[in-house]
Amino acid sequence: MTKVNNSFEKILKKYNYRLNSGDIVAGTIIYKESHGFLVNIGDKILGYLPQEETNIIIDYNNNKNFLINITREFFLIKHNEDRKQYILSIKRLEYIRSWKRIKQLQLENIIFNLKIHYSNKGGLITYLENIQAFIPKSHTLDQNNQFKNYEIKCKILITDEQKNQLILSNKSAILQLSIHKFRLGELLYGSIVKIKNYGLFVKIYNTIALLHISEVGYKYINDLNKIFYIGKLIKIKIMHINIKQGRLSVSKRNIK
């Protein structure tokens, strides 16, 4: 390792290369301090890896030296002029790489299974590539959010790396997997699973479709509960398919 570091120093001198914030550098952890680690990055000035930037929980009594002599890449946060050290991070490097993988998954329109960690009134919380993700209640098939500790199919809906925002959709994933079963204008039977004042939610195969009150019939209906009930099988027509938003709209108009 000494020969490699010496060679790296010569390259730095030869090309007058300067390390800058945001660079990714290779180094070896050589010493454990009270709140971090010293890292040999091949320059005369050592790098310093703060404990909070390791992304690792350490038991100082039993495992204080388990990172020593590990060689890997680090993200260079800044140069500490006072201590003459480069401040390094593993956590930020993993964060950058996680977002790169997430963007690739979005580009390839991948559907994946994710374990639900917990839920709140707005939806479900999970993790994709170690980045916390949110599935809005409106984008889950089970509106009661009874998914905790279960794996569900998801696909990416919205990404914003700057805001660390990752929004997923369960409905979009299910609709994409079932899209071969639906054709615009096709007549199908579905079972009513929910009744709202603005329309009916109908289950067709494993997908939930909205039958808006304006598409129930030509006559104005004041109370859908007087005509329909949960579990009733009705004949409907496929009117609109939006895979990205996971929306399937149907109609009962002009159906005999």
Rank of each mutant, 00 (worst) to 15 (best):
I234G: 05
F182Y: 12
L187R: 09
Q245A: 06
S21M: 12
L124Q: 04
E215K: 08
D23Q: 09
I221M: 04
I243Q: 08
K148G: 01
E108M: 04
L184C: 06
G47F: 08
R183V: 06
Y118M: 06
I192V: 15
H117F: 02
L93R: 01
Y31I: 05
E33A: 15
N40D: 08
I24T: 14
I96V: 11
N55F: 07
N65W: 07
N222F: 15
R83G: 00
R92V: 01
K203E: 15
T159C: 13
I24A: 07
K203F: 14
Q176W: 03
N55Y: 12
M239V: 15
D160C: 03
F228I: 13
I45Q: 13
K103I: 00
R253L: 07
T140I: 01
K235I: 03
A209G: 12
I70F: 11
Y229N: 06
Y118N: 09
K181S: 07
Y220L: 13
I102C: 10
A209H: 05
I30A: 06
Q146L: 07
E53V: 00
N164R: 07
I241Y: 01
L248T: 01
L12D: 03
Q165V: 12
Y118C: 05
K13Y: 06
Q104Y: 07
K137P: 08
I29P: 00
K10A: 11
I29T: 05
N222H: 14
I56Q: 01
N145R: 09
G246Y: 14
H240T: 08
K256A: 06
I102K: 10
Q132Y: 14
T71E: 10
N69A: 10
Q146W: 09
L19H: 07
N80K: 02
L211I: 15
S172W: 05
I243R: 09
I236L: 11
